[in-house]
Design a protein around this nucleic acid. Structure first.
Lengths: 259, 259
DNA sequence: AGCACTTGGTTTATGTTGTACACAGTTCTA
DNA sequence: TAGAACTGTGTACAACATAAACCAAGTGCT
C-alpha cells in the first residue's frame, strides 16, 4: 500500500498522541525516538519560546539532519501538538479534596500552573479539538468533579468551557503582560511608557469617563510584579466563576426530580 | 537624526493605531495609504484566513511591490495588530439597555459576533497589551456598564478579565470545531471519525468513567451544526458568568459603607 | 532660482523556514 | 538469496520577512 505521506491525516496524529505504534520489524533500528524529539522541542520552547522551535533547530540539538525528524513526525504542526500534549502532565486529583468546588479550584489552579510553566503553550495555534491522553485526562477530572452535582453531560461540558476559558484567558493576559519584552523585542519600559502615553494622551475623558477615572485613581499602577502570576487576581476571577457555577447548581437542584 | 528604522518601537505602533500622523510635506505624494493596506489585508484574511496574509500577497492585491508596504507599516507584526484593531468596529451601547447585567450581556454578545465574523482575529498572536482605540472603547464600555455597581476599579477589571476570557474562549472553541477543515486541510469527516475513534477506542471507562458515561449517553453527538455559533451554548455560559458577577456584587454591596 | 533634504516606490539580495524527493545503507521476510 | 520495508542523508525548492541601495518626486531655505 502506498504511503502517500504528509497530507494531514487525523488518524495518524491521533495514534502519535496516544503512542499506539507497534514497532516495525523489517527496517534498521531507529536511532531516534518520537519521545526524544518532542522532549528536545519542548526544551527549546521552554528556553526560547515556541518561535525558536524549527525543524532544523530541533534536529541540530539532537545531532541529526532536519529531514530525519520526518521519519517520526508527519509535520511541524503535529510536532507542536505533541509538544503541548507532553508538556502538560496531569497529576491525580488530591484525594483529600471533597466537593466539586474544591476539586474544581484545584483543577483550575493546576491548569494555570501548566500555562505558567510552559508559557509557549498558549502560542501554539489551536487547529483541532484536543485529542491527547493528557488533555482527555484533564477533561475527565473536571467532569468527574462536577458529576456529584447531578447535572447532565451537556451542562457539565458547558460549565467546563466557562472554567477553562477563564483559566486560559487569565493565563494569556498574564503572560502577555509579563513577557512583552521577550515577545516584542522592545523593552518592558518602552511598552510601559507607550501604554501610559496612550492612557493619558489618547484616552479622552469625555469618551472614556470610567476608564479615565480608574486611571486617575491609579488603578493601572498595580503593574507587573514579576510573578504575580497565580496571585489574588487569579483567585478573584476563579471564585467568581465558581460562584456562578454554584448558583446554577443550586437552582438546578432545586428544580430536579428527586431520584 | 538617524531614523534607525524597524527595531520594534511601541510608540510608533501606538501612533499608527490611533492614526496620529501629520502628513509630511516634503516628499512625493503617497500613492497608497495605511488604510488601504490594512483593508486589503483584512479582506484577504476574511477570505482565506490570516495564514494567507503575507506582505507579498497584500502588495500584489494592491498592485504595488512588496517593499512599498514598508513605507507605511514598520513590520508585519504591526500590520496584524492594525488589522485586529480595524476589524472590530465598536457600536455604541444601545441606550435602551439599563442595568449592568443587560449591558454586559449585550457587550459579550457583540464581542462574540466580532470573533464570529473575523475568525482569523483569534489566530493573530497576542504579543502586547491591546492599545488601539477600538480595543479601548470596548474596554470602556464594559467598565462603564459595571460602574453602577459601585465596585472599585480593580474589581471591575478583574470581572472584565473573566467575562472577556469566557467570550474569547468560547469563540476559540467554536471556531476550532467549525473550521477544522480549512485549518488542517483534512476533511471534517476525517476528524469526526478520528475523534470518535479516540472516544471509543482509547477512552478507557476505568480511567475515564464520567467521560465514558457522557459519551455513552450520546452527549457528544450534538456536534457541529454549521452556525451553532451564538447559540444556547454561548448563552448558557454567559448567564453563568453573569450570575457569578451578580453574586459578587450582592455580597459586596451588602458590606459596603453607605455613601 | 537653485540646492539640500525628505519621502515614495522599486530592485536586488539575504537568511530562514517547512518539506518534497531521490538515494544509500540496514534489517527482516519469503 | 531476492526483495520489501525501513532509516537517515543530501539536495532542492518555493515562500517568507525584511535589509540596503537607488532614483524620482516633491518641499523649504537661501
Amino acid at each position: 500500500m502506498a504511503t502517500d505521506n504528509h497530507r494531514p491525516e487525523p488518524n495518524r496524529t491521533l495514534e502519535l498522541l496516544w503512542g499506539v505504534q507497534q514497532p516495525p520489524s523489517r527496517g534498521p533500528k531507529p536511532a531516534l525516538s518520537l519521545r526524544q524529539i518532542v522532549d528536545t522541542a519542548i526544551a527549546v520552547a521552554d528556553a526560547e519560546g515556541v518561535g525558536a522551535v524549527s525543524m532544523r533547530r530541533v534536529a541540530d540539538e539532537l545531532g541529526f539532519t532536519t529531514m530525519s525528524l520526518y521519519r517520526y513526525v508527519p509535520s511541524k504542526t503535529d510536532l507542536l501538538e505533541l509538544m503541548v500534549e507532553h508538556a502538560s502532565e496531569v497529576p491525580d486529583v488530591p484525594p483529600e479534596l471533597s466537593g466539586w468546588r474544591d476539586k474544581l479550584r484545584w483543577w483550575a489552579t493546576d491548569t494555570a500552573q501548566i500555562y505558567q510553566r510552559r508559557r509557549w503553550a498558549l502560542d501554539v495555534p489551536l487547529n483541532a479539538p484536543p485529542m491527547g491522553p493528557n488533555q482527555i485526562k484533564r477533561m475527565e477530572q473536571a467532569l468527574a468533579a462536577l458529576d456529584e452535582t447531578g447535572l447532565s453531560g451537556g451542562e457539565m461540558v458547558g460549565i467546563l468551557v466557562v472554567l477553562s476559558g477563564y483559566v486560559r484567558g487569565h493565563a494569556q493576559l498574564a503572560t502577555t503582560l509579563a513577557d512583552v519584552e521577550s515577545r516584542t523585542g522592545a523593552s518592558q519600559q518602552a511598552w510601559d511608557t507607550a501604554y501610559g502615553r496612550m492612557l493619558t494622551e489618547f484616552v479622552d475623558p469625555e469618551r472614556h469617563p470610567t476608564l479615565a477615572r480608574i486611571v486617575a485613581e491609579g488603578g493601572f499602577e498595580n503593574g507587573q510584579d514579576e510573578d504575580e502570576w497565580l496571585d489574588e487576581d487569579f483567585g478573584f476571577g476563579l471564585e467568581l466563576v465558581l460562584d456562578g457555577i454554584a448558583r446554577y447548581v443550586e437552582r438546578r437542584q432545586g428544580s430536579m426530580s428527586p431520584e
